[in-house]
Design a protein around this nucleic acid. Sequence first.
DNA 1: AGTTAGATTTCGTCA
DNA 2: TGACGAAGTCTAACT
Lengths: 231, 231
Amino acid sequence: MRLVIARCSVDYAGRLQAHLPLATRLLIHKNDGSLLVHSDGGSYKPLNWMSPPCTLTVHEPDDDQRDAGVTELWRVTHAKTADMLVVSIYETLHDTAHELGVDPGLQKDGVEAHLQKLLAEQIELAGDGYTLVRREYMTAIGPVDILARDAVGASVAIEIKRRGGIDGVEQLTRYLELMNRDPLLAPVAGIFAAQEITPQARTLAEDRGIRCLLLDYDAMRGIDDGVPRLF
Amino acid sequence: MRLVIARCSVDYAGRLQAHLPLATRLLIHKNDGSLLVHSDGGSYKPLNWMSPPCTLTVHEPDDDQRDAGVTELWRVTHAKTADMLVVSIYETLHDTAHELGVDPGLQKDGVEAHLQKLLAEQIELAGDGYTLVRREYMTAIGPVDILARDAVGASVAIEIKRRGGIDGVEQLTRYLELMNRDPLLAPVAGIFAAQEITPQARTLAEDRGIRCLLLDYDAMRGIDDGVPRLF
DNA sequence: AGTTAGATTTCGTCA
DNA sequence: TGACGAAGTCTAACT
């Protein structure tokens, strides 16, 4: 990994065209050839970048560029697409290289998969007398998060989201349309379960006879596991 | 901006919990307090990070941690949520600070907005005798990309995507349902226009009587502007 | 390899 | 300020 702090301007041409005016920025040239251009603020997204696989070549500026103050040109071209990134360097303030090695990678835990697991274990949260049929119940157009039965044995399809938006309701609607054509399952009721549900999604769901269920992740987790929070 | 190369492990607790085993990584501490943890590969997304507003505090390791080889603890806490990131530093290989100043920001050009502008200008691509009513035609559930009239004056709603997927068809369907309830507009036909359309989206659209239109961005741009590509 | 759905998404825009 | 759609999205899972 090579780290360069430089006064530079950047031009990108590919799926769109973009330009960064002259300013001091951090350039990260990774071992896989990729290049990130970061400013001293904003989120984790670089101002501009080139994803691997790509290659960086350094060029001499032409006369016009040299007159304008450019000392070096970095050209990063993508290996497959025609995307190109050109960094015009006016002044290099810092330049170091470092050997990092391969990273073992991130270990994740939690989120929607966890919510699904928790609700499957605590299916009575969906309604008194509810029983679990199975998680990831497969249909022709994809898996329904949870298939359950209510107190009198009628089928209930449950769609789980962290944040419930209109698209989630649409998704559940498609599942319900399909499943209600299956005489072995029909009639199938729907429950839209999420930590948060947008007002639009709630309106749409209720308009279609789908019940909304707000999930309290912390409470569900607190019941489920005795593992204390790390911090 | 402070750049540190260090052997470290990282723990994150917030909307999920995650852990990074001991390895050599780049730590970027930006001026707004945010911290990025990058490896020497992958895309522009860091292995882990904390978004602003947040603050970093440095702590001494406790006895157990010191015995394990930890020399320093970085604790980054988010100002509003309870999110926390803890970096356990075992060895610092590089540590520099740099003054970058405020970045003037990215100037973009192109993409879906451009496609919409081009199709509005070349509305005859949608069909012979078509005329533009207006772009971003407002409805109660959001703006339709383009409202046009066909050769005999009937309304046509056009949804434009760069990549046409099922969600785009759903979106257009919602608009059409709504607009067809308006006696001043009805009947409203639909056109789903995109550079690429997935087979699933095409099938769904045609099943609902929505016509699909493939857009050739380069050809449309070639007709529109005489500006040559920069590279 | 292609497709789909989720993301600690981030980023813009508009009501 | 909140909500919604787009992104040069990225990423993982599944076909």
